[in-house]
Write a protein that binds this DNA or RNA. Structure first.
Lengths: 165, 165
DNA sequence: TTTGAAATAAATGCTAG
DNA sequence: CTAGCATTTATTTCAAA
């Protein structure tokens, strides 16, 4: 009688059980699924399901639910990865450059990395000319940037993600 | 009287007007915003708003609405970019490796690129050991892979995205 | 934590402009 | 393409277990 939680896979506080993982998987697939549909899919009452979703949001596991857009349909059919290497690495300057890269038009993701490069910038642009302009006007001219190297992206695919299973 | 569409910024068929862009921006910010809230925010009737959203979905601009999860909260606090270089580039073999990379546990995004590398793999893993195991067991041992180079990711930031403005 | 049922709120379908 | 209204659905709340 003491083990009323045999469905759960973890005992640690704040741990996610199978229901939580099922909810997350469903919302990754369709973030606008109704609470009723979600509840039916994971096998709990609607009120329980709403409670779980709120808890997942508040705990930070579920950070947001947002729209995914097709950059090509928005006039940016060309993707590139721009590797950025810095000449100096003072903390404040690195942060300031980071802030600027994130705000560039067409910037999709910016990775701050260790190793051969400092930043990897994934951008979507309207044309090769726009890519050249972006690099020449906003990146290589920046005083901290020592070198850039641009790779054309043929295709981007989402992986299976961080969920276990 | 003929110009009843003066609010629109483009005339081309399938082009997006300001209302469409406002809807997209709102749904990127909060993909679960109710249709009523969305309509109020962009300044159209609810029925019109629902119609627009459906049209944006059907035209492929709005590809999906989905949950974003925190890999760290799911037990994968360490991020890396793994650059993969191939020894041979036969079409079918490249595709088959691509398929496998996407399915690796913790794979977030896989970029197929031209230039110095062939693939850039963004992964989230539980530990440095898990990263080593992933690379040694699933990547470097693959017959097509000539070389890999791994960079630790300090931080990832979303850019402003593909929306104009 | 979970649940069902009532009250509130929202989405959809229909009509028409 | 847009809007208003009625119908159908969904979400929230809450007492209870």
């Amino acid at each position: 009688m003491a083990d009323q939680q045999s469905k759960k896979t973890q005992a640690a506080p704040g741990a996610l059980d199978g229901t939580d993982l099922a909810i997350l998987a469903a919302l990754v697939e369709d973030g606008r699924m109704t609470n009723a549909a979600l509840a039916a899919r994971v096998g709990v009452a609607e009120s329980t399901c709403a409670y779980r979703v709120r808890a997942l949001r508040e705990s930070g596991v579920l950070t947001s639910i947002s729209a995914r857009l097709d950059p090509g349909a928005l006039g940016r059919p060309i993707h590139a990865i721009i590797k950025v290497r810095l000449g100096s690495h003072s903390r404040d300057h690195v942060r300031s450059l980071y802030d600027r890269l994130v705000e560039l038009p067409g910037a999709l993701t910016v990775f701050h990395v260790g190793g051969a490069d400092d930043f990897l910038l994934h951008v979507a642009v309207a044309s090769p000319q726009a890519l050249r302009d972006l690099i020449l006007e906003h990146i290589t001219t920046h005083p901290m940037v020592r070198q850039t190297e641009t790779q054309l992206v043929f295709e981007v695919r989402e992986g299976r993600g961080a969920l276990p299973g």
